[in-house]
């Protein structure tokens, strides 16, 4: 089994996380925003997996299961909110939904 050095894995996770972050900040469509969040969560999960593999511990995979469960819940709530927003404002543009201005 070829072992991949952990640095490569962490660089991949970091790159994915930054991509997700950029997507979160620049996309106006809230579906893409939700997807960017998903990418960030999975990047964090990947980092746990790589770390677990490096030290041969099961903790990394256990944490990933937790993250998976949490992101499932997050997607459910997020999609619910998106449906409601679309229903109410007839748009998916996050910037137009700024009623909670201070």
């Amino acid at each position: 089994m070829i072992s991949i050095p952990m640095e490569f894995g962490l660089i991949l996770a970091g790159t994915l996380f930054v991509l997700g972050l950029i997507g979160l900040m620049v996309r106006r469509n809230i579906i893409f925003v939700l997807m960017s969040i998903e990418i960030m969560i999975n990047a964090a999960g990947a980092a746990f997996i790589f770390a677990g593999a490096k030290w041969g511990e099961p903790d990394g995979q256990i944490m990933f299961l937790f993250i998976l469960a949490m992101s499932a819940a997050e997607v459910a709530v997020g999609l619910g909110l998106i449906l409601q927003i679309y229903h109410k404002f007839q748009t998916l543009d996050g910037d137009t939904v700024s009623k909670m201005r201070g």
Binding site: L24, V26, D95
Partner: peptide, 18 residues
């Protein structure tokens, strides 16, 4: 001044957090 940062825009808040 601080109320002016409360724009109600999600992306602005996300940037703030970042």
């Amino acid at each position: 001044q601080l109320t002016r940062t409360q724009t109600g825009r999600l992306r602005w808040y996300a940037t703030g957090i970042v």
